[in-house]
Amino acid sequence: MNRLEALRNAVGELLDKVEGVIALRNKSGHVAPHLFREREELNGLGLSPKYPLPATLRLIQNEYPEAKLGIVCRGCEERGLIEMAKRNQVELGNVTVIGLACTADEAEECRCAKPYPSVLVDAHVGERTEPVPDRVAEELRQKEVAERLSFWRSQFDKCIKCYACRNACPQCFCPECTLEEELWVERGRVPPPFPSFHLIRAMHTAGKCVGCRECELSCPAHIPMTALYALIRQEMGEMFGYEPGVDLEDQPPLVLPMEVEI
């Protein structure tokens, strides 16, 4: 039984218990998030390319906070759900999660450190594959400061300030975004002058970014910004012992006071 068949069965079973399941629908070759309500719709179930389904869940829960829903989650989406739940963006009490493991190719493309879900999952689909090290981030780590500067300057100079990185990010949910604040990011300047726009975003995703790469995938200028976020994630792990998207109970370090003896 291939992955799609297995997923179809899992979603079909879940549909008997919940009001709807959020998954991908393939309609004439184009894949998009969809809320499946009936078993008959499942012929159109899709697998890839991935979309940030937790963001869809948030959208639906905004209107229907009480609805019993199911959601198909890859590893990154599960991590995203955990971080969103910590910040009260989704309510996991009424949500059933079907885990979908990524294939080795998908994990390779995403340079994914954990290409399978394991925390919130109620049903598993697909075989677990090995984590893939983030080579872009590692290369960057090896570089001298001046080399990094010229690398990022050449990348950030391509920015057309479309805010796609922010719009695509399931973790970016602030109703008022600092990146639209005139004080920090001047209007009418494209590319946004270094280091304002991109480093502000890097700071704001610190402790939230789970490395789903949605920002990078939707960037028209192909800026590999997740490499920067991955390095920050590693550093925060060392500094505070915090890894986003691993445990529902772990509180993000930036919202907690320090544990110090006075």
């Binding site: 960057l140 780590r141 400061v145 001046a146 080399e147 990094r148 500067l149 010229s150 690398f151 990022w152 300057r153 280091p195 991109h198 480093l199 890097a202 700071m203 610190a206 920067l228 390095l231 920050i232 550093e235 925060m236 500094m239 930036l254």
Partner: peptide, 12 residues
Amino acid sequence: PILQRILEFSGI
């Protein structure tokens, strides 16, 4: 410290 790391990784 987080911002210091961000600066470091972005070349400042």
